[in-house]
Design a protein around this nucleic acid. Structure first.
Length: 538
DNA sequence: CGGTTTTGACCGGCGC
DNA sequence: GCGCCGGTCAAAACCG
């Protein structure tokens, strides 16, 4: 532990130095940028007025790429001259690690610039710790200095914040791991498709509701809007959604609190773990895993223009995002360009450095899910999830193929960055809070027994599946949906090719937490490498 | 029989 | 005040 702490300190210093260098370069860059901008506004403003708009970027991302400052600089230049999304990419491609509910705007002022840089400074984040993330609305909007952690709810008669998810889904509803009861249906204006109203039935008093409606423009797009917070423990997949929506709400609230509160509907290219998680548990049905790459960074938006402030996560892109940091990130890490990287596979350094069998206890833990039907809650969900009663062989085959793809690709070049990323992530308070939220949701009162631990995964992730065999052969946990409908949830897609390859380590964000939890419980210190010490503290 | 879905009725907010 | 609309209620139907 001492060694680890010492190494941690050294890395922190290194990061701080890098961040400082980056800031210096960034300052220099923006000086140049300002000069160029003045020229561009004269020559090219009419051609790309939109590109010149300062876009508010919400980044809940694990950005990690080159540390080459000059490259980052160049990218920044390009991005500022092209669009804000690229700017976001730039921010994540400067070797810095960020996982926070950060909202930044394309820096068009030194003030923004400072915040943009500070946003990416781990060292600074460590110093500022819980300081609310600065959010910068477009220049058009009045800017106010954030006065605190004011919530949206405090801004007048605003109703509950909503999180809307747009996703391609062939099935009537997305399966998010929760139990829902339909209590109404309406034909909404401007959409021939009826809107379904659902409420969570896991707990009778649960206030969470969701609305499901097909997009009028594209029937293949399903718009699911969540509202409220669960008041009960959740299955792991539902916990992921809860955490995701919670984080999205936090983003909105954070953003809103720093804005003037006037109507805002900003396009928000979002490179977020939120989106990633949504991918993780909503959009990795097997049919999708066989599709072309769909790990794109969704366009998302935040709207506070109505009484229901809404975060919209648009996960409907069909083309692989080559400009998104996570897109690159994902294909880099998961090395599954042909398949939908439904989870953010930022590999933990622990798994990256694991011995081939290091995860065995973990997976043995999973095999324990064969016995998970011991609690009423558990059984309840088993029934729910077993409603289809079958596990198509095709799915298994696809996952096998999926796994093989993973195993045949090398991630070694990223190992070091992965390790660095893991440390930075683990030390990021925002990340910790998200993971803590997930764990809290997952473990309920936090003192859940191993049965609870197991049931969460087992329930949400598998049906009549021989876990022992399936996990060994193909440790992908996936979920069929209720009644065979609904987009499957596979946020637990643990591409744990690390079972066989120490270089492979596709552990998703939440599964990583899960793994740590499981590993801890099973006394498997395998996952508890030094680099995950911070996570373990959670 | 209990849980879920369907569907018309009802209610409140909002704009005109 | 009226109508529209989104959202909810609740009885009946449905389902396993």
């Amino acid at each position: 532990m001492d060694e680890v702490k010492g190494e941690n300190e050294r890395l922190k210093l290194l990061l701080a130095r890098i961040a400082k260098d980056y800031q210096t370069l960034q300052m220099h860059f923006f000086d140049i940028l300002q000069q160029e901008k003045t020229r561009y506004t004269d020559t090219a403003s009419s051609n790309q007025p939109k590109d010149q708009e300062p876009e508010v970027l919400i980044s809940l991302s694990l950005g990690i790429t080159s540390i080459d400052q000059e490259v980052g600089k160049d990218e920044k230049k390009n991005s500022n001259l092209s669009n804000g999304r690229l700017e976001n990419e730039k921010l994540s491609s400067t070797g810095e690690l960020s996982l926070g509910l950060d909202c930044i705007s394309e820096p068009s002022s030194t003030e923004n610039m400072r915040n943009a840089s500070s946003k990416n400074s781990i060292a600074q984040e460590l110093k500022e710790d819980q300081q609310p993330t600065e959010i910068w609305p477009p220049n058009k909007l009045l800017k106010t200095v954030r006065s605190g952690d004011d919530e949206v709810l405090e801004q007048g008669p605003l109703k509950k914040t909503r999180v809307s998810v747009r996703a391609r889904c062939d099935t009537p509803t997305l399966n998010d791991g929760c139990q829902w009861r339909k209590y109404g249906q309406k034909i909404a204006k401007g959409n021939p498709c009826p809107r379904g109203y659902y409420r969570c039935t896991v707990s009778p008093s649960c206030p969470v509701r969701k609305q499901v409606q097909r997009c009028a423009d594209d029937m293949s797009i399903l718009i699911t809007t969540y509202e409220g917070t669960h008041d009960h423990p959740l299955p792991i997949s539902a916990a992921a959604m809860a955490s995701t929506t919670s984080a999205a709400v936090s983003m909105l609230q954070s953003r809103s609190s720093s804005s003037t509160g006037i109507g805002i509907s900003a396009s928000v290219p979002i490179s977020s773990s939120i989106a990633t998680n949504l991918h993780g548990f909503n959009f990795s049905t097997l049919s999708q895993t066989s599709r072309p790459p769909q790990f794109y960074i969704p366009n998302s938006s935040i709207s506070t223009s109505n009484s229901h402030p809404t975060v919209t996560l648009d996960l409907t892109s069909t083309a692989p995002s080559t400009s998104s940091p996570l897109g690159r990130f994902s294909s880099s890490f998961s090395s599954t360009p042909r398949y939908s990287a439904t989870c953010l596979n930022f590999s933990s350094s622990s798994s990256a450095s694991l011995e081939p069998n290091a995860l065995q206890p973990f997976w043995h833990g999973y095999t324990g899910y064969n016995n998970y039907g011991t609690s009423a809650y558990n059984q309840n969900h088993i029934g729910y999830l077993n409603s289809t009663g079958k596990q198509p062989a095709l799915q298994e085959h696809l996952f096998q193929t999926y796994m093989n793809m993973n195993q045949n690709t090398s991630q070694q070049p990223f190992k070091e960055t992965i390790e660095a990323a893991t440390k930075a992530i683990a030390s990021n308070p925002n990340f910790q809070s998200v993971v803590a939220a997930a764990l809290t949701s997952y473990t309920g009162d936090g003192g859940g027994n191993s049965g609870d631990q197991n049931q969460g995964v087992g329930n949400s992730s598998c049906q009549k599946m021989n876990w022992d065999e399936s996990l060994r052969a193909n440790p992908l946990i996936y979920q069929s949906s209720q009644n065979g409908i609904g987009c499957g949830s596979s946020f637990l897609n643990i591409k744990s090719s690390s079972l066989n390859s120490p270089q492979q380590s596709g552990l998703t964000l939440f599964p990583t937490s899960l793994q740590l939890s499981a590993a801890t419980k099973s006394s498997a210190a395998s996952a508890a490498s030094a680099d995950n010490s911070d996570l373990l503290k959670l």
